[in-house]
Deep mutational scan, measured.
Amino acid sequence: TFELKGKVGKVVKIAEDHYLVEVEGDKWIAYSDEKLSLGDRVMVVDVDGLKLKAKRIP
């Protein structure tokens, strides 16, 4: 999973306390310091076990 750092994905679902992000065809649980919206493009900035930390990108 460490190779996911720096990869770009898309928010495909918003849950109460996390997001579901699709990166290279796989879906991952993600969290972010900022509020994300459905369809936002994100970059993986860190990997915490099986969770990704994501940041919105333009």
Results as ranks from 00 to 15, higher is better:
residue 27 K to G: 08
residue 37 S to A: 12
residue 13 K to L: 10
residue 29 I to N: 10
residue 10 K to D: 11
residue 51 K to C: 09
residue 8 V to L: 10
residue 23 V to G: 02
residue 50 L to H: 11
residue 12 V to I: 10
residue 3 E to K: 03
residue 31 Y to K: 08
residue 41 R to Y: 13
residue 26 D to T: 15
residue 28 W to V: 02
residue 34 E to T: 07
residue 25 G to T: 06
residue 50 L to S: 12
residue 57 I to L: 12
residue 16 E to T: 10
residue 46 D to R: 03
residue 11 V to N: 00
residue 2 F to W: 08
residue 10 K to N: 11
residue 52 L to Y: 02
residue 33 D to P: 07
residue 24 E to A: 07
residue 11 V to G: 00
residue 24 E to K: 04
residue 44 V to C: 03
residue 15 A to S: 12
residue 24 E to I: 08
residue 15 A to T: 14
residue 14 I to F: 08
residue 32 S to T: 05
residue 15 A to W: 14
residue 4 L to W: 03
residue 25 G to H: 08
residue 10 K to C: 13
residue 2 F to H: 15
residue 11 V to W: 01
residue 47 V to L: 04
residue 43 M to Q: 09
residue 40 D to I: 05
residue 44 V to K: 00
residue 34 E to R: 04
residue 24 E to L: 10
residue 15 A to M: 14
residue 14 I to H: 06
residue 3 E to S: 02
residue 48 D to I: 15
residue 2 F to C: 15
residue 39 G to F: 13
residue 20 L to V: 09
residue 38 L to E: 08
residue 54 A to T: 15
residue 22 E to K: 08
residue 49 G to H: 06
residue 25 G to Y: 07
residue 37 S to F: 14
residue 30 A to W: 01
residue 23 V to P: 00
residue 58 P to W: 12
residue 37 S to H: 13
residue 34 E to N: 07
residue 31 Y to D: 09
residue 55 K to Y: 03
residue 49 G to Y: 05
residue 5 K to S: 10
residue 36 L to Y: 03
residue 18 H to E: 14
residue 15 A to V: 14
residue 55 K to E: 12
residue 46 D to W: 02
residue 45 V to D: 07
residue 34 E to F: 04
residue 12 V to A: 06
residue 1 T to E: 15
residue 54 A to E: 00
residue 47 V to D: 04
residue 51 K to W: 07
residue 42 V to L: 04
residue 21 V to L: 14
residue 45 V to S: 04
residue 40 D to C: 07
residue 7 K to H: 04
residue 5 K to Q: 14
residue 5 K to Y: 15
residue 36 L to M: 09
residue 37 S to Y: 14
residue 14 I to K: 07
residue 54 A to Q: 00
residue 46 D to V: 03
residue 32 S to E: 01
residue 56 R to E: 02
residue 13 K to P: 00
residue 33 D to I: 10
residue 2 F to Y: 06
residue 20 L to W: 13
residue 23 V to E: 01
residue 56 R to K: 09
residue 45 V to I: 11
residue 43 M to P: 00
residue 28 W to F: 07
residue 19 Y to W: 08
residue 58 P to D: 12
residue 31 Y to E: 09
residue 28 W to G: 01
residue 37 S to N: 11
residue 42 V to I: 15
